[in-house]
């Protein structure tokens, strides 16, 4: 069971959180300008790499804030977490 550091509330056990998929995938500013293929890529295609991966979590049972976590998908190490608007290098 992970212990995830909520950037607001501090470290908590995993059941308090909800997973939200890959981070830094913005909803397109004007979807109508995208081709079917571009739109489908936004909807359905995500990275699935070994190593450090930026992903979204929501502190559902706590402050309800969405934030980002850097997790090593190979070792399960949680490298750090950072707030929406911050960048992966801000993770701690």
């Amino acid at each position: 069971m992970f212990e995830i550091r909520c950037p607001y509330c501090g470290p908590r056990d995993e059941p308090e959180f909800k997973y939200g998929g890959q981070a830094h995938v913005a909803y397109p500013a004007d979807p109508e300008l995208l081709s079917d293929e571009e739109w489908a890529r936004f909807l359905f295609v995500r990275d699935n790499s070994r190593g450090r991966y930026a992903e979204r979590w929501n502190h559902a049972a706590g402050c309800r804030r969405w934030f980002n976590v850097i997790r090593d998908t190979g070792t399960h190490e949680l490298v750090g977490s950072y707030r929406v608007g911050e960048q992966p290098e801000d993770a701690r």
Partner: peptide
Amino acid sequence: CAQTLIHKAG
């Protein structure tokens, strides 16, 4: 204070 879980309840 803290918002947390008692097993499955917030």
